[in-house]
């Protein structure tokens, strides 16, 4: 069931500008290394640039894709974000050493498309931000997770079960690299969780803070996204055909388990 939307394509100018701002911020903070991380009095400059660049970039991308979806996609996105939040809580209840807080985002990316996944990720972090403020700067990371999940599905990677974990691994890799400067420049390299011990270990071996946050992300994110992607694969395969065929990109996924 599809209804008309006011626009059918992203506003490429806005989306392109958003991606360019994020890329420029990343390159500036990671490759050219301004004086942000040393003990100079301008220690907050790195935080200011990271926060402004990532927030403006996320805003432009979300704005650029906001008006193009069908009504059923807008009906799906809140459910997907609630899935993110509630599965995150189930994982805490089961005391698993994972986050698994982007299953809904990946699901929308796979079933509807990359830009719907991107919008779901970005809005999910904005809504989390309404309670904890901390996830707000990481909206770009969530956008990229949804975007990549959708692109991998479009490339047919969700038709082959052995490609799904690889797609998850690659997405986790990008997420870890992208979130490292935020973590290092704004949050002093820590997340307030158990994986912070890794930061201490890497620092003890003389790594810079940015390197230590990157390594910490690489130790946690790829495995987490790998498991999320595999879970989404099994959910999509298990969907009744009547439900699956409602979503526009569902033709790019496997319809049954390999025998």
């Amino acid at each position: 069931m599809r209804y008309g939307a006011s626009q059918s394509r992203p506003q490429w100018l806005l989306v392109g500008a958003g991606l360019a701002v994020v890329a420029a911020t990343y390159l500036l903070l990671v490759l050219s290394r301004p004086s942000g991380l040393d003990q100079s009095p301008t220690a907050n400059t790195g935080a200011l640039i990271a926060l402004a660049g990532y927030l403006i970039g996320a805003g432009l991308i979300i704005w650029g894709v906001a008006r193009q979806f069908t009504t059923s996609t807008y009906a799906l996105i809140p459910l997907a974000i609630a899935i993110n939040i509630v599965i995150g809580e189930i994982v805490t209840l089961l005391k698993l050493p994972l986050y698994l807080d982007s299953i809904g985002t990946v699901l929308v990316g796979v079933l509807v498309g990359p830009w719907a996944g991107a919008a779901t990720g970005g809005l999910a972090n904005i809504i989390w931000g309404l309670f904890r403020a901390v996830p707000l700067p990481f909206a770009v990371v969530a956008i990229v997770i949804g975007l990549l999940a959708g692109l991998f599905a479009r490339l047919g990677w969700f038709k082959r079960i052995y490609l799904v974990p690889i797609a998850g691994l690659l997405t986790g890799l990008v997420a870890a690299l992208l979130s490292a400067p935020l973590s290092a420049f704004i949050f002093g390299g820590v997340t307030g969780g158990g994986t912070d011990a890794l930061v201490a270990a890497f620092r003890a071996y003389g790594a810079t803070l940015l390197q230590a946050s990157t390594f910490q992300g690489l130790a946690a994110d790829p495995l987490d996204k790998l498991i999320s992607f595999v879970i989404v694969y099994f959910i999509v395969v298990a969907l009744p055909p009547r439900v699956r065929s409602r979503f526009s990109q569902s033709g790019t996924t496997a319809s049954q388990l390999p025998r």
Binding site: S72, L79, L107, I231, F234
Partner: peptide
């Protein structure tokens, strides 16, 4: 292993809601 039996029904139930919500919105 407990994750599958908990996550599966939750997500499936949510996806089944989409059609009803779409009609209500339209």
């Amino acid at each position: 292993r407990a994750l599958g039996p908990l996550v599966g029904p939750l997500v499936l139930g949510a996806l089944l809601d989409v059609e009803e919500r779409t009609l209500a919105l339209e």
